[in-house]
Nucleic acid binder design. Sequence first.
RNA 1: GGACCCGUGGUGUAGCGGCCCAACAUGCCAGCCUGUCACGCUGGAGAUCGCCGGUUCGAAUCCGGUCGGGUCCGCCA
Length: 623
Amino acid sequence: MPGDRLATPYRTHTCGALRSSDAGSTARLSGWVHRRRDHGQLIFLDLRDRHGITQVVVDKSDDPDAHAVASRVRSEFVVTVDGEVARRLTGTENRRLPTGEIELRGRAVRILSESKTPPFYINDPDAQIDEALRLRYRYLDIRREAMSERLFLRSRLVQAIRKVHHAHGFVEVETPNLIKSTPEGARDFIVPSRLQPGSVYALPQSPQQLKQLLMVAGVDRYFQIARCFRDEDLRGDRQPEFTQLDLEMSFVDEDAVMAFVEAMVIEVCRSTTPDRPIAETPFPRFTYAEAMERFGTDKPDLRFGIELVDLAPLWSEAPSGFRVFDDALHDGGRVKAIVAPGMGGISRREIDELTERAKRLGAKGLVWLAVEETGAVRSSVSKFLGEDGAERLVAHAGANPGDLVLVVADETAVTSEVLGGLRAELGGRLGLADPEVLSFCWIHRFPMYKWDVENERWDATHNPFSGVLPEDEELLTTTAGDLAKPAPDDPAGRARALQYDITLNGWELGGGSIRIHRRDLLARSFALQGQTEAGMNEKFGALLEAFEYGPPPHGGIAIGIDRWAALLADQRNIREVMAFPKTQSGGDLMLDAPSAPDPAQFAELGLRFVGAPRRDPATPPAE
RNA sequence: GGACCCGUGGUGUAGCGGCCCAACAUGCCAGCCUGUCACGCUGGAGAUCGCCGGUUCGAAUCCGGUCGGGUCCGCCA
């Protein structure tokens, strides 16, 4: 591009550009002083910018003035150095630097800006720094190579996403951030309107309705890198504002969306992190029911085996003799097991830890059977099952000598969730998952609804506009025959949605669905969820009205960019791939947000706090 | 809303009732040093142990509260 000049009055090259082939030429570099090594008559400066590090050497006998300036320079000063690119003396090359064969012999050093001593080390890649400190001085944190590399990776990710979508006929459309509150489950952030006092905008939890309106508008294929806002409690993988790859396609069925997304995801991963192998293509697909049955979760990490084994067949003829098992089966629950390879030598303390973990996941207890190297079974329940019973159980579970079998007996859902949680825990603890591999899978055919015990009604498990499997359409009804009288055993509870989630290494990466575009089905689905006609119009008026003007069949997906980037960067925390994330209490430690409002702003909006006033603004950030 | 963990010179840690007006490493400052690249050597400065209160003859250390950070549960179509 003609206007893109790297060479400016400040530099002829970046700090990562010079090589031995440049030896003999002159160059001007600008950057931060990464490190200074003062040898008296001779001073070395490692000059750093985001492209790399180049060693500058300033020799007093070459230029006393330059040497005097170099003596004054400190870490993180910004300097410009003019000099001659010289091949380093034989034996003093630095193989760890791409620029390590040369150095810049400094003839003129100018200080562009000085720096206080930074609050933590910029130049130590292994430094363990308190995260609160990193967040308060994020601009320094991002100077660190590990952090900036993650941001560059994220930039490449987003660039690859855009490239693939544009190549496949998608139109990138921006949707507004000041919209109407749309009840999608999470709490809204609201923004008071000055022009219409007493009214508020809501920040979008996702562009869901807007992208469906774009389908009605005939855009056909839409995508957006969209900022989304949800006012819920934070987690390592959840921030109040986050970024989604949001896309929607017209005239598609489930397979068409999944096929495109899968191809797109593979291409984007290969281009962003070419060295990371993708486990299995096409991505394995599981129905929700199968995933819960085999892995105890709807986001299984498939980088390792360990599946849930149903133990019920062992006792089809006669009861097990252990009350906990027999009662669970008698009450319609399940008794299932997982095998932890090589954990047969587990200690009492570790068993207690696992039991504690199981209880936190909802189990009443945890049964364990350790298989000794000799094949003998050591267990807490041998006395109930008998030696023979215990050995049959262990054999049925597929355990080998040296393994540990963990058994949970409870209601179906609890059994799955507990063993699913333990499976994930063991995978991490035993290091079963290859950290390099990217292992995707699809989960689809989720239940349309889950029973809302509190409100005695059916609740959409995902998007309220998600479609239903054609063969399950007739299930969208109640036993009473009246949609206004839902009950927990209604046929609707068995209806499966045209809903699909994509999972990467045990994280839910994204989810989407084929939408309901038929008014009659939509009305039935909403009625089951306890929505009146008037209520529907209040909440979804624009979309419902649009659906009266020829909506095309359509569907799409939303994929979490923060999570995707975190997984590609091998991070367990999305804050590590966000430039300026918030703390668990929703604060920005650098900007000191949120903060007390300006009274004048409040007056203009006709607002005042009626609860306890916020404390005075916190102590100012950096001195 | 709940459970748990953490808070000690700039940074990371040690100390966990008196031996501590607090130790170590690194950083910082000064001096010396012409081939280093985590340069080296010598010397120096730097902390009322997050904050408030209590127990005790005595608290960095024990207790309560509070603030800040984190992990998890609830919550998050």
